[in-house]
Amino acid sequence: MNDNLKLNNSELQFLSLAYNAFYDIYEEILDDNFWSEDQYFRFSRARDAFSIYAELLNYEPIKWVIEHMKTSRPPMEAEIGSELFKFIRNVIAHFPFYNSWDDIWISKGLVNWYKEGRFLRKYAGRQKVKYRFWQADIKRMTYLSIGFPEEYTEESKIYMKDILTEEEGIKFSMILMRQILDTQVIKE
């Protein structure tokens, strides 16, 4: 990593706004009270977090972190922290007709109506990836699986909840996103 990387004013302005907004949403989503909110509100906040994170993935030093993760972290973690999260953002952004996480579904025809999507074509048929995460503030270990569709055909109707569950999946996503983003924060 390049410790001498100098930010220009545009980068500094964008990164400040994006990081502050992401961290605010992170705190909100990881609070247990968040999960008693209306499903559309929860969906909207998750959508915002995935959108901000996907924009931050364009920042060159974060790209370096993702590349480093491919050889230093558990299998598929870099791909989940980049490709899967960007895929989720793209589905939510390009198909804005869903009102809750569990409503989201896609098919090959829908995803490819304008431009061919690559994520599902690349990862269909892969085994589930199992994770766990510890929430120290509430002393809870959560286990989850990230699923990939068995097949990706014109007829398949693939639900987001089958790839990543709402509560556990979004909490996990937020934690992994934060770990990746925190690599660029200087702690004084």
Rank of each mutant, 00 (worst) to 15 (best):
A136L: 11
E77K: 06
L84M: 05
T71I: 07
F50M: 01
R89H: 15
H68K: 09
P75D: 06
D102A: 13
L84G: 01
P149F: 04
F148W: 05
M76P: 01
P96D: 03
L110C: 03
K63G: 08
G81M: 05
E60M: 13
I106T: 10
H68D: 11
K115G: 14
K139D: 14
P61E: 00
F119C: 03
S107Y: 08
D38G: 01
Q127G: 15
V65N: 01
I146P: 01
N90R: 13
R73F: 10
M141A: 09
Y53Q: 01
I52W: 00
S107L: 02
A136N: 09
E60I: 13
E55A: 14
H68W: 12
W35S: 04
K122H: 06
S107V: 09
D38M: 05
F43A: 04
M141N: 06
F95E: 15
L56I: 12
D32G: 07
I80F: 05
K139R: 12
E77L: 09
S82I: 04
Q39C: 10
D32Y: 11
Y131D: 07
P149M: 02
P61T: 03
F97R: 12
Q135T: 14
S100V: 08
S72T: 13
R47W: 02
Y131K: 11
E77V: 12
R118Q: 14
E79I: 05
R126P: 05
D48A: 01
Q127T: 14
R42D: 00
P149Y: 05
I106Q: 07
S51F: 03
L144S: 04
F85M: 15
F95N: 15
I66C: 08
S72Q: 12
D38Q: 08
I92C: 00
L110P: 01
F85Q: 12
E116H: 09
I52L: 01
F41W: 10
L120C: 04
Q127N: 15
K139V: 11
I80Y: 10
W105G: 07
G125N: 04
W101D: 02
L120M: 08
G109R: 15
N33L: 11
E37H: 11
F43C: 02
P96K: 01
P149A: 06
G81P: 03
F119V: 01
Y143F: 11
M141G: 03
D38S: 00
R126M: 14
S72F: 09
F50Q: 00
V129R: 06
E37D: 12
A54K: 15
W101L: 03
T142H: 10
L120R: 01
E79N: 09
V111P: 00
S107M: 06
R140A: 11
R126F: 13
W101G: 01
W64K: 13
E150C: 03
E60H: 12
V129H: 03
R118L: 10
I146V: 14
R121P: 02
L144C: 02
L56V: 11
A78K: 12
A78P: 05
Y53T: 02
A124P: 04
S44L: 13
E150G: 03
F43V: 02
E55V: 09
F148E: 00
I66G: 08
T71A: 08
T71H: 08
E151R: 07
I80L: 11
A46I: 04
F41M: 06
R42F: 00
D38R: 04
L120P: 00
M141V: 10
I146R: 04
Y40V: 12
P75T: 06
P75R: 06
A124I: 07
R47F: 05
